[in-house]
Amino acid sequence: MTSMKKLLLILLLMGTTLFAESNTGITMPYIDFPMKEGKGMYSTKGKCNMCHSWGYTINQGLQSKKFWREKVTKMIVVFKAPIRTQKDIDTVVDYLFENYGNGEME
């Protein structure tokens, strides 16, 4: 029992030393940002959420159709998002505007 206690103490001290001298890295949490149900949701999910959280998208605020179209274009042109056909672009823009729009076309 005494030797067991000694061993525990040694392990404890070792643990303290390790903690002081190095870091063990971090584990990032997953946060769920639910998407509004609507036409094009699954397509949008696949195209946007592959690279970033849905939170990043919806925390741009409610926006015009022109805004969402420009954002999607920026994702393709600047950030190289693989959204290739006009139909796919329209699906994503329509979903965003229908569900996260401000009612304004421009």
Partner: peptide, 21 residues
């Protein structure tokens, strides 16, 4: 603030996890 804390942080107002905001 969120009910989920990020590493080395107390719970904060959370806009995104990927990237963290």
């Amino acid at each position: 603030v969120s009910n989920i804390a990020f590493p080395q942080k107390r719970p904060l107002i959370t806009y995104s996890d990927r990237p963290p905001l």
